[in-house]
Nucleic acid binder design. Structure first.
Lengths: 344, 344
DNA sequence: CTGTTAGCGCATTCAT
DNA sequence: ATGAATGCGCTAACAG
């Protein structure tokens, strides 16, 4: 029952050298007789040595770790982002801290603060409710931050985002070309920028076509159940305003859309004959619902990958020149694509 | 452009005291004049002090962090587990390292090793392909490990698992009561114990009822698409062996089942009239497919929560007595429940 | 109640 | 090519 980890000092003693020598041998730093090096590596192996990244981090001021904060880990949208980030960080020898902040700005900041306390080398925050608010917190410590889907005008931070407005617009135009005239929007109250952009696209596009953008309701969150439960009230609203049901529903995302489709079918309405339904994201299951769901493909995994790549680039640059360049924050826009299936 | 973080020494200097005093003030350790304490806290606040958990970890030998390894982050099964673990760790002030090891035992071990290098206080591994193999790695460092869904006989580690065998058995019995006689199993090649148990239940239960357990095929993984693509070949096999289609299909999990349902419908077979379909897990979308999916509810989120709770308990105990108790590993079995919907 | 001293495990000067 | 000394930021022991 060996209570203690072996340190480079232990190895040094066993090998009859000093610990700095072991340190060099282990990391291949500086030239040294390959004889002693081999011996040291040998002994380290035998003793089951594992370098303490904690101690190393304290002296080098780099922990080879990054922190990721998302709203909801179990949401398939974020799951894929997490997966993308994890893949890249892991491949580059970085460890990943994960935290969630279910639509709570305070919690989000607390999460980031705790990661800073752990000296992460970089941060990624998806769908931040804070955005530029991190400026004062981060400027002192100089930790780089990459935002995902938090595009704010004049962002102080590097930002990866998807062009929700353009995507939604194209979806709307498709519906209009199809001859749909009573197009309702089923939103999500607890989403930030994504909701804002998508709803704005709905209003704008309908406005341009001289169609009324009046029937809309927001779900409390983006669960399937939420779309299912909210849809009936959306129908009531349509009845009140138009005297009949919508002939198309644009949903905040696929989950909400799936719930809405089910609810429509429960009421005896046919999709897409009576009501067309469009989602957003193109999650895996969208291709397998009945009817299959037309939607907008947002490359979530790739966005996670890209965010991590940008962050790691930043860290590498930091190693070179000492922040003199101070280049402007990068903005990387993803555009996605329309995916037409059966529901619209 | 403050390149340097403020340390307790900086605060000490500003306050005209020694740094240990600051340390105590900040953590409320030992009694001291509340006057100076207030002043110190005040100054720390003003200077934007954040304690370095790296340095603290080095001296206390506790990092207040845990490492979690799962097979696939984006799989809804694991997503919920991650969420459960994260919720509990976060609530207790621990940070969470997340890593994935897509069905690769070596990768899994590498992940655990890297977490050990980071001095995590505890580890959780879901669906481990290594299991007791961690014994030699962990005994030296004494880091506790909790396994999820990796129940091996005579496990050396604490283990949270779901009783897949019993669950599957009840599902089978339901189908048999319904009068189904040609029951096929659509599995998943890349799953470990879960696959083994579920398939074994299928064989055993059918055997007990004198029914043939002959038609079975394994998907390459547990994606919807995988179930969709593999089902046709399962039908061919049934045709060859029985001369007709199965009247029921038990799938490895809900994702595979959803793909299978879609493929069946594509072939003009009705679910459940011609073929009943049962999934496993009860993921959110299962209640919203057409037809809605009958399945077995596995409390994934709760299992994640429980795993984290057990681990944190272990850590608290460790603080007390010095590992003398050495109690036997706990085993916590979850049982789940049958969820009957339209598909079977 | 507070200051002094020491050391966690490692990397990094500087000597030699 | 290697050893001695120093410090990263913090907590823990012990004085005072």
């Amino acid at each position: 029952m060996n209570r203690k980890r072996v340190s480079i000092k232990d190895i040094a003693q066993a090998a009859g050298v000093s610990h700095p020598t072991v340190s060099r041998a282990l990391r291949g730093k500086g030239r040294m007789s390959s004889a002693t090096r081999a011996r040291i590596l040998q002994i380290a192996e035998e003793m089951g040595y594992t370098p303490s990244l904690v101690a190393r981090g304290l002296v080098t001021q780099r922990t080879e770790s990054v922190g990721l904060v998302v709203a909801d880990i179990a949401d398939p949208f974020y799951s894929e982002i997490i997966k993308g980030v994890e893949q890249v960080t892991q491949a580059n020898g970085f460890s990943l801290f994960l935290g969630s902040a279910i639509d709570d700005a305070d919690q989000e900041v607390r999460m980031v603060r705790s990661f800073l306390g752990r000296h992460v080398d970089g941060l990624i925050v998806s769908s931040s409710q804070v955005g530029n608010g991190y400026q004062p917190i981060l400027e002192d410590v100089g930790t780089p931050l990459v935002l995902i889907n938090t595009h704010v005008d004049g962002s102080q931070f590097h930002s990866i985002y998807h062009q929700d407005f353009q995507g939604s617009q194209q979806m709307l135009q498709h519906l209009i070309r199809q001859g749909r005239r009573r197009i309702a929007y089923l939103g999500n109250r607890s989403a930030g920028r994504a909701q804002t952009e998508r709803k704005r696209a709905w209003q704008t596009t309908l406005g341009q076509e001289g169609l009324p953008a009046k029937v809309t309701l927001d779900c409390p969150n983006s669960h399937i159940q939420s779309g299912f439960a909210t849809l009936p009230r959306l129908l009531e609203q349509a009845q009140r305003i138009w005297g009949e049901a919508p002939d198309a529903i644009v949903a905040y995302n696929d989950l909400v859309a799936i719930g809405a489709m089910k609810a429509l079918q429960r009421q005896g309405l046919r999709v897409p004959e009576d009501v067309a339904v469009m989602g957003f994201d193109d999650i895996e299951v969208a291709a397998f619902t009945s009817p299959t769901l037309s939607t907008w493909r947002q490359p979530r995994y790739e966005m996670g990958v890209r965010a991590a790549e940008v962050l790691l680039d930043l860290l590498r640059e930091e190693d070179g020149r000492r922040e003199d360049g101070e280049e402007p924050p990068r903005e990387i826009a993803f555009s996605g694509e329309l995916v037409l299936r059966e529901s619209a």
